[in-house]
Structures are given as structure tokens and as C-alpha cells.
Simulated assay, not measured.
Amino acid sequence: MADTETGAARPRPATLPLLIAAVVVVVLALVVWALTADSGSDDSTVSTPAAESADAGFARDMAVHHQQAVEMSYIVRDQTDNEDVRRLAYDVAQTQANQRGMLQGWLDLWGLPKTSPDGYMAWMEGGGHMGHEPRDGSLMPGMASNTELDKLRELEGRQAEVFYLQLMYDHHMGGVDMAQACVRQCGVETEKQLAQGMVQGQQSEMELMTDMLKERGSAPR
């Protein structure tokens, strides 16, 4: 999107701070994990979950789910000048990039692959489909389709804001569904605590998105 005064393209937000923050979170997660495993806590009995476990499945799938949220957030930051939407997009991107680094750090620590031969959502009891199936290139419930991502890239201004908020609301619905399943099914206490934090954080953002959509004469889909 061109700058309204100079006509020059606005540069993309710097990603270095996000990368640094993600590295820091991963290092801290590994340290905490090592300490809890050595301390004789309940986590020590499940310090290396099985590849097909809910712990590993959640880490793999949520990392992928988070990556799309980061992508959509950077798209909309280039498509609007509205500071409220840009601030929300930055917060979503920063939070989910950091959490994604933590999830992948655990998989590395456990020596488990970052992809599952059983496909996405196989670890979830009931599949977590929220009443609908992934479609048109979307990998999991709540994720945007290829067509929707292409549309978001084409929109600008208020139209981009509304569509982003609707897509991210759906995305958070899927994320909350997955995180609640981890709280129920995962055995690693540290991971369950992260999942519970995701539930609370994303539900709060969904309320904010609903208010922002209402201000724009719209609503979640």
C-alpha cells in the first residue's frame, strides 16, 4: 500500500525484534524444562512424550496454526493505516511468533519430528472440527483458505480491516479449540499451562475483535 503523502511503498515491519524475542523464549523454555525434569516434578515422568501423544501433536499443529496468524497479521499491516488494527496485528504476530518458537523448541528438546505422518489434528479427541472441515488449502479448522488469503492481500483500508478481523476471529476460534484440547489431554504440565494461557489470551482478543468489527458496521462471520 503506497504512502498517502509521498506515494512511496511503506516498508514492511522489521522482523528482527520478533526473531530475537522468539529465540529468547525458546532458550527460557528449554531452561525451565530442564529444571523441572531434574527437580522430580510430575513433568519428569513425561519429559519425552511419544510422537503420537497429544503433547507432541499440539506442539506440531499449533506451531503451524500460529504461523498463519503471523502471516495474516503482517499482510494487514501493509494494507491499512488504521493504528488500532495495526497495533492488534503487531500484538498477534509477536505473541504467536514467540509461542511458536516455544512449541518448536519443545519438539527439538524431545527429539520429535515437526510434522506427523498421521496428518493434522489426529491427536485431538473428536478431531476438533468445530462443526466444519478445513477447505480450499486450509490445513486445520479456523485457518484461512488460500482464496481468503489472496483476497486479504488485494483489499485495502476498511475492507482489509474488516476481513482481517473476521479471519482472525475464526482463526482464534480454532486455536482456542485446540488449546482447550491440550489442557484436557496433554500430560506435560508446562505445555498445559501455555495452552491455558492461549485460551485466555485469544478469547480476550476475540472480544476486542468483535468490538472493532461493530465499530466498522460488521460482525464475526
Rank of each mutant, 00 (worst) to 15 (best):
E156N: 12
F163H: 06
D55M: 06
E148D: 11
L194D: 02
S145H: 05
G119Q: 01
Q193V: 13
Q185Y: 05
M173S: 11
L19G: 11
D55R: 05
P17W: 11
F58P: 00
D177G: 05
L103E: 01
L109H: 10
M102T: 11
M130W: 05
E189I: 06
W110A: 02
M206C: 03
V27Q: 07
A69Y: 11
N82Y: 12
N82W: 12
Q94T: 14
G126L: 06
D43Y: 01
N98A: 15
A9I: 15
S53M: 03
Q202E: 04
E161C: 06
M140C: 04
R216M: 13
A97I: 09
E83F: 14
P11Q: 11
R135C: 08
S44T: 10
T6S: 14
D136L: 12
Q94C: 13
D81T: 11
E83W: 14
S145K: 08
A219R: 14
R77V: 01
P141M: 07
G157S: 10
R77F: 02
R216C: 07
R77C: 03
G126R: 03
E71L: 14
A54N: 03
S39I: 06
L194H: 00
R87S: 15
H132N: 05
Q68L: 12
V64M: 12
G7E: 07
P134N: 09
F58Q: 00
L107F: 01
E125M: 06
D42V: 06
E71R: 12
D108Q: 10
T115Q: 00
Q180D: 11
R153I: 02
A69Q: 10
R221I: 10
A54M: 05
G174H: 12
A34H: 10
A93N: 13
M143W: 07
T115I: 00
W123N: 00
M168D: 02
S145N: 07
G142P: 08
P49C: 08
M168P: 03
D61H: 00
T115R: 00
R10G: 01
A37I: 08
A8R: 14
A63E: 03
D118C: 02
G127R: 02
D91P: 14
A144V: 03
H66N: 05
D136H: 08
G217Q: 08
T15W: 15
G131V: 04
P220E: 09
L16Q: 07
D78V: 10
G101A: 09
K192Q: 13
G119P: 03
Q196C: 00
V26C: 13
E5Q: 14
L112V: 03
A63C: 07
T6Y: 06
A29S: 14
S53K: 02
V70E: 13
T48H: 10
P49M: 05
R87Y: 10
D78L: 15
G187P: 02
L194S: 02
E205D: 09
L16M: 13
D43G: 00
V24G: 13
S218P: 04
D91C: 13
P117K: 02
P220T: 07
P117H: 01
D55V: 03
Q193A: 04
E191D: 01
G105T: 04
D118Q: 06
V27R: 05
S138R: 07
G7N: 09
M212C: 01
A21P: 13
A122M: 00
S47T: 06
M72Y: 07
S218N: 12
A34K: 11
D150G: 10
L213M: 12
G40E: 04
Q193P: 00
V25P: 08
T45E: 15
